[in-house]
């Protein structure tokens, strides 16, 4: 039976293919996915116990500082990281950039992040993600946005938070919004679901799924502004099933120690004594940005439709 990496993929379409994509997201639960910009950082992340790495040229804090257009990372860099670690390798494409996504799929990247951290390529449409063999993760600020992305084929949702800010407030806002709206839908009568789907601009079938199951149809992770073990524990407390740490590790003064501490806090978030132990001996966290100092057009979370 042909199962080569370059198989035509037809057999992967449909429900079974989507279950395989969600399956990998299930395997990442309880873990920490770390942004890395080179092979050395990828190894630090793997040694610290990261469950996956996100290969990108610049962490969000630097993208924010440098300005200009942020694109998919260089292929050579992504391949170098794929060769150097055994854990899953993710990479980002610009919103709506179908061709960048085809490149990452051909590279055998394990998860594609259609990410607001990069400069959008399409100001109206996201990628039709069911058409790919690779699973996709997308950011969301609220339930409607999350379900639109799942409708397009995202196999994992993460909060957008505010990437590169070192400030957890936006991730908290987005987690509370998604999880709170889920609880709200559970409380609706079935004859109220269509009007609600219309209000939040989400596919009706997915709204019905949330009503019946009390959760998103795919795993729900947190990202954007996580900088400390306590930030990780907070996101888990609020309903995130795993976390992404972008700038928070390699923009801190102690990346290997902080990486291990955040992994540990993520496993033991329900045990305050363990989280205390994670916080001992840490150097300075990354510098953060207060939200009121960011104008609306400086906020990466506003990208995506």
């Amino acid at each position: 039976m042909a199962r080569s990496a370059n198989g035509n993929g037809d057999a992967r379409r449909g429900a079974e293919a989507f279950e395989l994509k969600i399956g990998l997201a299930e395997m990442l639960k309880g873990g920490v996915i770390m942004d890395v910009t080179d092979v050395d950082q990828a190894k630090v992340a793997e040694d610290a116990g990261a469950c996956a790495v996100m290969a990108l040229e610049r962490v969000p804090a630097d993208i924010r500082r440098d300005g200009g257009v942020a694109r998919m990372s260089a292929v050579d860099m992504i391949e170098g990281i794929q060769r150097s670690v055994s854990i899953p390798v993710m990479a980002k494409v610009r919103i709506g950039h179908i061709a960048e996504a085809r490149i990452l799929e051909a590279l055998g990247v394990d998860f594609i992040d259609e990410s607001e951290v990069l400069t959008p390529a399409d100001d109206e449409n996201h990628i039709a993600k069911h058409d790919f063999k690779s699973p996709f993760v997308c950011g969301a600020r609220n339930l409607g946005e999350a379900l639109r992305r799942v409708g397009e084929g995202a196999a994992m949702i993460r909060t957008k938070g505010e990437a590169g800010s070192g400030n957890i407030v936006e991730a908290v806002r987005h987690l509370r919004s998604v999880c709170g709206e889920i609880r709200g839908i559970q409380a609706l009568r079935t004859d109220e679901l269509m009007a609600h789907a219309k209000n939040i601009q989400a596919p009706y079938e997915l709204v019905r799924f949330v009503h019946e199951n009390g959760r998103l149809p795919v795993p729900n992770f947190a990202a954007g502004g996580i900088a400390t073990p306590a930030d990780a524990a907070l996101c888990r407390e609020l309903g995130a099933e795993a976390i992404f740490v972008g700038s928070g590790i390699f923009k801190s003064d102690d990346p290997p120690v902080r990486a291990r501490a955040i992994v540990r806090a993520n496993t033991h978030w329900e045990d305050p004594d363990e989280v205390v132990a994670c916080c001992r001996g840490l150097a300075n966290a990354m510098e953060g940005i207060e939200m009121s100092t960011l104008s609306e057009n400086e906020r990466l979370a506003n990208r995506g439709w």
Binding site: R3, S4, A5, R12, E16, E19, L20, K21, G23, L24, Q82, P88, V89, E105, G108, V109, D110, F111, K133, S134, P135
Partner: peptide
């Protein structure tokens, strides 16, 4: 292989 080679 990688995730693109996952199967049922």
């Amino acid at each position: 292989g990688t995730q693109v080679d996952s199967f049922v």
